[in-house]
Design a protein around this nucleic acid. Sequence first.
DNA 1: CACAGCCTTGCAACCGATTGCAAACCCAAC
DNA 2: GTTGGGTTTGCAATCGGTTGCAAGGCTGTG
Lengths: 332, 332
Amino acid sequence: MSVTLKEVAALAGVSRSAVSRTFTEGASVSPKTRSKVEKAAAELGYSPNALASSLTTGRTKLIGLISNNFHNPIFLEVFDQFTRALQERGLRPLIVNLTDETEPTNSVRMLRQYSVDAAIVASSTLPPSFAKAFHDAGVPVVHTFGRSATSPEVHVVGIDNVECGRMAARELSSRGYRRIGYLGGPKDATSAMDRYRGFMEEVEKHPELEVTHCFAGAYSFEAGREEMLQQLAEGPAEGYFCGDDILSIGALSALSDHGLKPGKDIGIIGLNDMEMSRWESVDLTTIHQPIKQIITASVDLVEEMLKDPERYPEARIFPCRVIERGTLRPRP
Amino acid sequence: MSVTLKEVAALAGVSRSAVSRTFTEGASVSPKTRSKVEKAAAELGYSPNALASSLTTGRTKLIGLISNNFHNPIFLEVFDQFTRALQERGLRPLIVNLTDETEPTNSVRMLRQYSVDAAIVASSTLPPSFAKAFHDAGVPVVHTFGRSATSPEVHVVGIDNVECGRMAARELSSRGYRRIGYLGGPKDATSAMDRYRGFMEEVEKHPELEVTHCFAGAYSFEAGREEMLQQLAEGPAEGYFCGDDILSIGALSALSDHGLKPGKDIGIIGLNDMEMSRWESVDLTTIHQPIKQIITASVDLVEEMLKDPERYPEARIFPCRVIERGTLRPRP
DNA sequence: CACAGCCTTGCAACCGATTGCAAACCCAAC
DNA sequence: GTTGGGTTTGCAATCGGTTGCAAGGCTGTG
């Protein structure tokens, strides 16, 4: 079927080693044989089998990319960035879609079978233990959007979710909202809990605030919408921190059902600043998460782990900031 | 580093072949040795190296998944479905993000280096020649969302875009729109051209119709919005067929800028029926494309090609239908 | 012209598996 | 106790590469 080293060697009239060496960076080949080999290779349309060579080199350049967020539009941006960043560095993304699985066993086994050089867990919902399982199985791993910690067990890149919770509460309070609410992601998502904690922490400092909270079933439009409908039925707060832009957009849809104007009748602040939030019809005030930098940093870390697998685990936490648009009332 | 066949064999006190055979379906091993091997394997945490075995079996179970649509939210649904469907059958998606590349050379070479068993080109914009390049390089390929043809050069799964164009024109005309427009995707996208052709074909049959057309720079919100703003500036038609839901949503945003109500002041019909189109705030009348079936059929074809690589190229074209929501005026 | 020293080259072992083949084994029937 | 059948097993070659090592080639110097 496909052309092999041996055939090229035969055609070029050199040994297999010679061929191998012309295709490996920094190996010693004379210009003469190199050109002979290149000519033969071109003639046969040869390109080296990456998997065969991985056997001896121990490097596949395959990177497992594991996620469970295939319903949040922000993840299209995330995948775009990740695949680009990996490709630019000659790495190949092997995707694992977790669907409903929250146990790492299967993905770990599978990625080990394919000898990935490293794995990236891209999820704000999975616990640190999930990523740790890869580390324990000898697969270098970085947990992107993972729970931040001062001394993490594996590399973590993302934001300080607790701080984002505080930031949202401060923002609501500073705009004069008194009865405020947290509409978070699923209760078992680390990001939902961390944002909740920060939100509540800040609320404690302001005795004048009244607070409610609820958790959506997923980070999805439908879940956000449903939860907000519920709130409206029970008597809503004046301003909400929705734990994600997609939840916010669902919530906005619920408001519009009831003829309520966001920013006027009820305040909404989201988190992520995804492309859609900028759409005029959405115009969502939100906490910007620097996705691009987070992803670049994640891939940087992957590369560094490839050089030094024993690298001490590190957390790279990026600051967030409020992007003011139209869904919160103006500051007094 | 990782445990190998040899070590398991040593611990179990059997030959390497025995170990190999206990891990391959349908090989002949006695229950006794099998259990010895399984015990040893469990003890060492062994799992076979898929890449090493691919060397001899010639099968990697890797499937290249190539796309250039990382800005259309529908593709999150597409990736979700594809990765699930592949995983369910024990196949592993290796992603290629084409960014701005329209030449297949690089992706073909890369996927050959990784010995993928097959490739899926998931794009409604790339020409048949793109997919053909994989076929010519000996990589079995199916072109999902590709241009349909009665005798395609490679497997094609998708819809009849020309017919969709006709359908849209019929739909507009049947609702009494007289001055109608086509707002298509990029001029170099096969789907944009095919839909255009069908649209025009149908228009020809109705002498009472007046028609305009334009092509957006990309299948994206921004591009759709911009193109519609342009139309509004130049004096718009009464009803538009936007060649994709995301273009429609961009167009809707432009309408709202001008205080125009879709379905009342101007009609819009999209194509895809993506999740977002069902949102109450969008409520887009659109032509439903059966994504899930298309993807299942694509992966079916991949599997069949794995069995019989010489399989004669086939087109699987799925019917579409109009989903009535709120952006077209009611039928008279 | 001889020789030292570096560059280039091929040999052969190896990476982690699979598999055709023949030997060894088991069990049953005669 | 043989013989015959089918199973199970291990040997060794193979898949497509890489790489340490030693031999061979080249250069330049004395």
